[in-house]
Simulated assay, not measured.
Amino acid sequence: MSKVKYYYDSETLSYRKIEAKKSKKFAVVLTFLLGIVVSSFLLLMLYLNIPGIETPKERKYKREITQMKLQYELLDKKMNNVVEVLEDIEQRDNKIYRVFFEANPLTSEQRQSGFGGINRYENLESFENSELIVSTSKKLDVLTKRLAIQSQSLDEIVQLAKNKEALLEAIPAIQPVKNDDLKRTASGYGMRYHPIYKYRKMHNGMDFSAPRGTEVFATGNAKVKKARLTSGFGNLIILDHGFGYETYYAHLKDLNVRRGQTVKRGEIIGTVGNTGVSTGPHLHYEVRKDGRPTNPMNFYHGDLTPEEYDIMFNMSTLENQSLD
C-alpha cells in the first residue's frame, strides 16, 4: 500500500493531502503498458530464435509433412512398379499382338508423349516441397496417359481379333468341286493357249473338268454379288467374301443362289455346266484380291495336305490348253 503524503498549507494553517496529478497518473499507466508490450515482444523474439523450441502446432505440422513425404515416396515406388508392368504389356503389344494381326506398332513417341501448352503445375510450385509434389504429379499424369493409349491399343487388338476370325471364315480355303483324286485339275493359272481364239492369253483362274450337274461349293463365307447369265462366262456366280476377296464360278449349268444371299463355306451354290465361251463341261474358278486376279493355288490350305498341294500345283503349272 502506497504511503499517503501531506503538505503544510500556511494559509489555512493545516496539513493537506498531496493529490497526484491526472497527467502524471496517465504517464505512469502508459509507461507501464509500454513496458509490458516491449517485454512481450522481446520475449517473443527470444522464443522464436531459440533453437529447439517448437509450439504444439509446429510439431503437429512437422509430423504431417514427414508423413506426407513418406507417402509420396511410397506412391513413387508403386508408380515405378506399375510402369514396369505397363512397359512389359507395351512390348508384348508391339512385338506379339500387333505383329500377329498385321497392325503397325505404336512408337515410343506415341506412347510417352507429354503434355504441351501452359504450365499444368504452376499452382504446385509455391510450396516448400514443390519439387517432390510436381515430380510425382508429372509422373502420374504421364502414366495415366500411357495407360489410356495402351487401353485403346488393346481395344483395337480385340477388334482385329474379331476381324481375323471373320477373315479366316471368309477367305477362300477349299476347292470349289469335289476333287479327292486331284484328277479334275484341267488347267491352271497363267499364260495358256486359248482353245477358241487360238492364241496364248492370260488364264486368270483354274479349270476343273467334271460332268454336268457336279456340285459346286462356296469356298468361304460370303455374300452373293452376282448370279446370272453372262456372255463370256455363261452362268456366273460372283461371291464377295469381304476383306477385298471375291471368287468367280463360271460356265455353270444351275444357279442355286440369288444376288444378296449369304452363303457359308462348303455350301452348294450351283452345278458344273458348259455355258458361255467353253469347249466342254467344266468349272472356271477365279480368286480376286482387291479386284486383281490371283492364283487360286494359294487358297487350298483348307482341304489339301502338303503332299496333295505339291501334286496339284505341278498339274496346274503344265503349259496345256485351257477349256475357256
Score class of each variant (00 low, 15 high):
200 R>E: 08
125 E>C: 04
117 G>P: 13
252 L>Y: 00
313 F>P: 00
32 F>L: 07
249 Y>R: 04
43 L>R: 08
22 K>R: 14
105 P>D: 08
134 V>N: 07
3 K>E: 08
226 K>L: 15
264 K>Y: 02
74 L>N: 07
104 N>D: 08
209 S>M: 05
61 Y>E: 14
218 A>E: 10
208 F>K: 03
44 L>K: 08
279 T>M: 10
58 E>S: 15
258 R>P: 04
95 K>E: 11
230 T>W: 00
284 H>S: 06
299 F>E: 02
63 R>G: 10
154 L>I: 11
284 H>G: 05
321 Q>V: 15
61 Y>N: 13
279 T>L: 09
173 A>M: 02
256 N>M: 12
59 R>H: 07
240 D>F: 02
310 D>S: 09
124 L>H: 01
52 G>E: 06
36 I>P: 10
45 M>V: 15
126 S>M: 12
313 F>R: 14
145 K>P: 00
176 P>D: 07
276 G>M: 12
213 G>T: 04
82 V>I: 15
5 K>C: 01
34 L>M: 14
63 R>E: 11
214 T>M: 07
123 N>T: 15
2 S>T: 03
13 L>N: 08
232 G>V: 15
49 N>T: 14
277 V>N: 09
229 L>G: 09
236 L>A: 02
304 L>N: 01
265 R>A: 09
191 M>H: 13
197 Y>P: 00
133 I>W: 03
179 N>T: 06
71 Q>T: 10
297 M>P: 03
24 K>F: 09
219 T>Q: 08
28 V>Q: 11
167 L>R: 05
41 F>M: 11
184 R>G: 13
33 L>Q: 08
299 F>G: 00
102 E>K: 14
308 E>H: 05
241 H>R: 06
61 Y>D: 14
65 I>P: 00
163 N>E: 14
59 R>M: 10
175 Q>R: 09
283 L>N: 06
172 P>W: 01
74 L>M: 10
8 Y>S: 11
170 A>V: 03
271 T>V: 02
89 I>N: 08
181 D>V: 10
310 D>I: 06
156 E>C: 04
86 L>T: 08
238 I>P: 01
198 K>Q: 12
120 R>Q: 11
44 L>P: 04
68 M>R: 06
235 N>K: 11
9 D>H: 10
5 K>T: 10
272 V>H: 02
17 K>P: 00
311 I>Q: 12
145 K>D: 04
6 Y>N: 01
240 D>A: 05
